[in-house]
Amino acid sequence: MSGHDHSHESENLPPLEGAGGPALENLVLEEAIRELLIEKEVIEAREVERLLEVLQTRRPALGARLVTRIWTDPDFRKLALENGKAAAELELGINLVEAPEIIFLENTPKRHHLVVCTLCSCYPTYIMGPSPTWYRSKAFRARVVKEPRAVLAEFNTDLPEDVEIRVVDSTAEVRYLVVPVRPGGSEGMNREALARLVNRDSMIGAALADSP
């Protein structure tokens, strides 16, 4: 990182991702808007960097910690279902004052939640870090509200017809984190071992937790 210079050269741009990654023009647009906001003193460069530093410490492993505690601690589960943000702050020891509300969606053998944001790409970034590229893709966002079972099948997640699929369109002020069903055969495992079963996609509802 070359510090705080306001160079308009493009050499600081991050490398392009695959076909689903951000288009070059979007990266240029982001840089232009960010630098304008800094020049107009709406934001400070170090605010942006501070936020990016915070977000880089957030990752799916933190979500997995919350899931395993919900699985194993009935009092914590009750708190999490009543006040998601308070539960996350308690378990993770992080400050979520600036974060949107968090609601945990508990999957059961009869109901499977699957989260999307059709309007943009809202995601519990403050806990999980940046969302996966496919989550932000227009194809996923458009299709999942209309043919959720076909989309789930593409993630190798096939659910029987008697399981209600509940798509959750994260349209406003709340971020949703799915608590997958605790897999069979995981009885007696400690939280550290359980956490390895909680993959990122299972906390979006695109997948199930892994089997031990």
Binding site: K146, E147, R149, D162, E164, I165, R166, V167, D169
Partner: peptide, 19 residues
């Protein structure tokens, strides 16, 4: 879901929630 899409082809119990 069947109230959102006339051609929804999943089970009648499938739902969607939004804020």
């Amino acid at each position: 879901q069947s109230g959102l899409w006339s051609d929804y082809d999943g089970p009648a119990g499938d739902t969607l929630i939004a804020d």
